[in-house]
């Protein structure tokens, strides 16, 4: 029995067909319940992406890279100056977390607003699509409601180093499939 004894592989060798199926199904259950939780959160919060990771330092010192934000996007909640919104601009993949600087709302509820990052010296017009001066409600992904620091750093690492991502996924998958209760 050495230190790097691969005796955990013995578990697989000892499994019969029934147990293998069980493991595969178990794996499927984990994946599908994760998906259900995500979709359920989408329904409850009204946001297309209820949890986001802060990817840039433009909101320091409030949010740093790797902080996790919990969003809601209720239709009846109006957008007001000073709120922290997450928005997605056409032609840009990554959603942006910034603070609302100006709001102009018409009587029928259509709203135009301008945002700025706390750590940026100018407003976001340079970040918007070319020629775009105002954001509208359809571009909002959600309003920041809750905050957990550092948790999202794993996601950032995975994005920056794809190999790390595959290694983690492979390890997790292997663990679930091989491990015998």
């Amino acid at each position: 029995m050495g230190m790097f004894d691969f005796d955990f592989l013995d578990d697989v060798r000892r499994m019969n067909k029934r147990q293998l199926y069980y493991q595969a199904l178990n794996f499927g259950m984990i994946v599908s319940s994760a998906l259900m939780i995500w979709k359920g959160l989408m329904v409850v919060t009204g946001s297309e992406s209820p949890i986001v990771v802060v990817l840039s330092g433009s909101m320091e010192p409030a949010f740093y890279r790797g902080d996790l934000l919990f969003l809601t996007n209720y239709r009846e909640e109006p957008i007001r100056a000073g709120e922290i919104v997450v928005f997605k601009i056409e032609g840009r993949e990554i959603p942006i977390v910034h603070r609302v600087l100006k709001v102009h709302e018409k009587e029928n509820g259509t709203v135009k607003f301008l945002t700025k990052g706390d750590n940026n010296s100018v407003d976001d017009r340079g970040l918007y699509a070319p020629g775009q001066l105002w954001l509208e409600k359809k571009e909002v992904v959600g309003r920041a409601r809750g905050f957990v620091p550092y948790v999202g750093i794993v996601t950032i690492l995975m994005n920056d180093y794809p190999k790390f991502k595959y290694a983690i996924l492979a390890c997790l998958g292997a663990f679930v499939l091989i491990h015998r209760e």
């Binding site: 010192p61 100056a81 709001v103 102009h104 009587e107």
Partner: peptide
Amino acid sequence: KDHKLNQVVVWDKIIK
């Protein structure tokens, strides 16, 4: 006249 509600941030400060 045409916008019912307008909000403009004129000043801000970060307190750590």
